[in-house]
Design a protein around this nucleic acid. Structure first.
Lengths: 226, 226
DNA sequence: ATATTTAATTTTGAATTCATAATTACGTCA
DNA sequence: TGACGTAATTATGAATTCAAAATTAAATAT
């Protein structure tokens, strides 16, 4: 423990922001449901003022929908939303690949290679949860190697919204195999530091991911996740 | 006047948000200065509650910097910030070009051509303010033709931050000529609906814009705009 | 006179209060 | 019984109030 650390007390609205975001992203608060403002205030022992500040920020972030004089609702995720969000994420992820190739260290590449091999092992063991975790870690590591905090903020905000869809559980074997193969290409381009190629592969990777989501949504004959 | 329009009274914090954003973007509130919360509350006749909500949203947007227990400052724009923001804007603008080519109508292209010719006329007349306005209208029209509200929101947020730098006043003749030439290429690619090409040109266009900013900042031997 | 400590003032963060809008519950009448 | 209208309740938006932190001013000491 660092004893000379300054004593900073994070403000309530920041703390709340993180907690509420987690509640929505992990699915504790379901899309389309009303946000129980009073109940959350009681649960966290805060007044409505910081709670409402946090909700307004989350509304800008796209996780919350504010209806004037009617309260706050957890945003739904429609296919139309995803059709807009995925191309933007694709462009951002392609950029992160390009920048990462120019800036990543050999050590960082080695670490990603290790995570990649873990991921392959989870794939072989058909452990979807662990696979998903390694997968996400790889994309985060590339993003981090891009050394661009604006890019990081924007990408994370979109990724959080998409992640709520939880479509991965419905991934077919075929799709899963293709995703793993694409990841081989990602590693290969990264190790050769081929920025443009990596950008294109990442973009394509995300596009196929979106196709999975689209098919799932269309097959289930629903147009929103609630 | 549309008599069947629903009677919506916009909430104060939304109104304030727009007003404050305008104050910062148009330079009435200078980068690095403290935001006079009390004074603004009096000016707009509102209490601190909605004002503080608006400031928190603007902080997420990157226009305001909140220092815990010390208040709100207008964000400074450092060269380091711009070095991060420009590549992201470039990726988004490239995407807007690609999508626009796939979706734009002939009428929209014709309208952009008209604005383009206006812009050329302002260039010939060396009317920088009018040139700037037409220029911005063209980029907005392409963005709008991309039909992607997520993209629009993100791009506009970054554009607002960059616009505060007001580097255009310092554009050299050489740079200005190059920008006009790039715009000819933009129109050409758009009219041929060559999405990939348009994307690359827009990205390059923004990159040269950034070089102007960088040189200006470095020549003036300052590292922030205040 | 300047540096340092202490007290007064101002500002901030957050709880509380209050007016208004929205929702629900109730009562009336066909 | 069910549709409509009214009253009671609840929730929301925003002003006010209050405690704590930061800043400024004043006082003391060197």
């Amino acid at each position: 423990m660092n004893l000379s650390e300054p004593l900073v007390r994070p403000s309530l609205h920041i703390e709340l922001l993180d907690r509420l975001r987690a509640l929505i992203v992990d699915g504790s608060l379901l899309p389309g449901t009303k946000i129980p403002e009073r109940e959350l205030c009681e649960r966290y022992g805060v007044s409505r003022t910081p709670m409402r500040e946090a909700l307004k920020v989350l509304a800008v972030d796209g996780l919350v929908w504010l209806e004037p004089n009617r309260g706050a609702w957890v945003s739904k995720i429609t296919l139309e939303d995803l059709e807009e969000v995925f191309p933007v994420m694709g462009a951002l992820e392609a950029l992160s690949g390009e920048l990462a190739c120019a800036r990543i260290t050999d050590e960082e590449i080695a670490a990603i290679r290790t995570t990649h091999e873990d991921m392959i092992a989870h794939y072989a063991a058909r452990d979807l949860a662990q696979y998903f975790q390694s997968n996400q870690a790889i994309h985060e590591a590339i993003l981090s190697a891009a050394r661009n905090s604006e890019l990081t903020t924007m990408y994370r905000s979109l990724a959080a919204r998409v992640r709520r869809a939880r479509y991965l559980a419905n991934m077919t074997d075929e799709r899963w195999a293709k995703a793993v193969e694409e990841h081989e290409q990602i590693l290969s381009a990264l190790e050769k530091r081929q920025g443009d190629a990596l950008g294109q592969i990442l973009r394509q990777h995300l596009a196929s991911k979106f196709e999975t989501v689209r098919q799932w949504l269309e097959n289930d004959d629903i147009d929103e996740l609630s």
